[in-house]
């Protein structure tokens, strides 16, 4: 029973956080400042989530750094998302075999 309460609270809080701003906001935001912040938020959030967490994502700093460098290079040449992600994963895996 308490497990169901835990799960319900987890799911409920997470849903409301997502639903309220997304559903309530109807008007176009006029302020250039706010529009600018909202324009930059996606990149800022993804960057903050990636660094430094990516360096700890594979249980080994060296394989993670190799994977990161490979991902950055391939992304620079605009390869598709899946290719970049899989190449990072494979290069980290292969590096792990050598250390």
């Amino acid at each position: 029973m308490s497990m169901l309460i835990y799960i319900a609270v987890m799911a409920g809080v997470t849903y409301l956080i997502r639903m309220i701003p997304f559903t309530i906001f109807r008007k176009k935001i006029k302020s250039r400042f706010i529009q600018s912040v909202l324009y930059y938020i996606p990149y800022a959030v993804l960057s903050a989530m990636t660094f430094p967490s990516i360096f700890y994502s594979t249980d080994n700093n060296i394989t993670a750094i190799v994977g990161t460098v490979v991902a950055v290079i391939l992304a620079y040449f605009k390869l598709p998302l899946t290719v970049v992600a899989l190449a990072a994963c494979v290069s980290a895996l292969v590096t792990g075999f050598f250390i």
């Binding site: 960057s47 990636t50 992304a75 899946t82 970049v84 992600a85």
Partner: peptide, 9 residues
């Protein structure tokens, strides 16, 4: 994270 990189870079 590789996917995030593919978006921000």
């Amino acid at each position: 994270y590789g996917m995030f990189i593919a978006i921000i870079v």
